[in-house]
């Protein structure tokens, strides 16, 4: 188990109530874990705790047995939007993490180009961010996150700001990449369909319980299709669970 959360709680300094209470969760190597739940139930908080951007009030988060105390390149986060650097071009953005790590220029550009090709963006490598569409930006963002070869990839609603068509295409691309490379991914979404499409297991976070309501393993072969009966059944089951939550 690369990542384990034991008895993790979070109470923000300026709030009276706990945001998360007694979370126990582990993520296996190569697992794609999706978290769904009502807005404000604490999904992003959970991700920030794992990323080390926030510290738990109680409990412990272990990555390969070592406690998480600060953000680090072994837990790269892909944010919803606006996390690309407007002063760098596409290539420089994608290579940014490798540059921080001191990878030589030639080598990091090779790697960056490989991921840009994977995202069908190599023609745009010299573009600046403002010259790209929203969908292209998130593909650059995804490419940047993937180059880091991080132990676990944390994604906070990466496709939410996009239109349905673009986000569907991107999630299919993400599924392909994960099937090819077996990444360990912690993925937040408010779309149950997206969760069932991508996940090995779906964690339903409850605002009422301030914790995990249910964990649903999705036993469907990949690639998945949203119109399959089994898919629809999973979707219905999880949606009910989310809607029952009185936060």
């Amino acid at each position: 188990m690369p990542l384990t959360l034991s008895n993790v709680s979070k109470i923000f300094a300026d709030s009276e109530h706990a945001t998360l209470k007694h979370i126990n969760l582990s993520i296996a190597d190569g697992e794609f874990l999706c978290v769904v739940g009502k807005s404000g139930c604490g999904k992003s908080t959970l991700l920030n705790l794992i990323a080390g951007l926030e510290m738990p009030t109680e409990g412990e988060i272990l990555l390969d047995g070592k406690p998480v105390t600060a953000p680090g390149a072994d837990r790269v986060v892909m944010f919803q939007e606006h996390a690309l650097y407007p002063w760098l071009n596409v290539m420089e953005n994608v290579a940014f993490g490798m540059q921080l790590a001191g990878v030589p220029k030639k080598q990091r550009e090779e790697t960056a180009l490989r991921y840009l090709e994977l995202m069908q963006l190599s023609d745009y490598k010299d573009y600046y961010i403002h010259q790209l569409s929203g969908g292209m930006r998130q593909r650059v963002n995804l490419a940047r996150s993937l180059t880091m070869d991080s132990r676990i990839l944390l994604m906070d609603e990466p496709f939410s700001a996009l239109d349905k068509q673009t986000s569907n295409r991107l999630r299919a691309e993400l599924q392909d990449i994960c099937m090819q490379t077996r990444r360990t991914v912690f993925f937040i979404t408010h779309s149950v369909e997206e969760a069932v499409y991508l996940a090995d297991r779906v964690v339903v976070l409850s605002a009422a319980k301030k914790g995990i309501a249910e964990i649903v393993p999705i036993e469907l072969p990949r690639p998945r299709h949203v119109y399959d009966e089994a898919f629809i059944e999973y979707r219905r089951q999880i949606l009910e669970e989310v809607q029952e939550d009185k936060g």
Partner: peptide, 15 residues
């Protein structure tokens, strides 16, 4: 400076 720029860099291992 938008905090997300710093956050993103931190999670990519920036000192």
């Amino acid at each position: 400076v938008p905090p997300i720029y710093k956050k993103a860099a931190l999670t990519m291992g920036a000192t």
